[in-house]
């Protein structure tokens, strides 16, 4: 009960949100700048890594996951693992098809 009260009302202040927003904007500029370089196959990898960093900032801070009960983190991990398996199995099919 006590713990519920805490997770429901405590969260980061305005300042934290603005810092995260600045980081997100910087990462957007970075991903546009990096796209200008010719990194061949690495281009999409770098772009996706930046996208994953950006979305983890949104999920952890904007969506409060960092400050929620453990059950939310478990749910999210299960969903993440399921998505990973779906992608891995599909790629295992696509990449090794003749």
């Amino acid at each position: 009960m006590e713990e519920n009260v805490k997770t429901d009302t405590s969260g980061p202040g305005y300042g934290t949100y603005i810092l995260v927003w600045l980081a997100l904007i910087s990462l957007t500029c970075l991903t546009v700048a990096v796209a200008g370089f010719n990194l061949a196959a690495l281009t999409v990898v770098v772009a996706l890594i930046i996208a994953v960093v950006k979305s983890s900032l949104v999920v952890n801070i904007f969506m409060h996951i960092r400050f929620e009960d453990r059950i939310f983190k478990i749910f999210l991990s299960v969903a993440g693992v399921v998505l990973f398996v779906i992608f891995a199995l599909t790629f295992a099919d696509v990449f090794f098809r003749k």
């Binding site: 991903t31 796209a35 930046i50 996208a51 979305s55 999920v59 904007f62 969506m63």
Partner: peptide
């Protein structure tokens, strides 16, 4: 409001992935 915000953030996250995949592959 918190739940509506969660929905809005999800829309944002999907765009975070759509943007490099459709606009930055040249």
């Amino acid at each position: 409001l918190e739940n509506a915000g969660l929905y809005w953030h999800l829309v944002d996250i999907i765009w975070i992935f759509l943007f490099p995949l459709f606009y930055l592959i040249n």
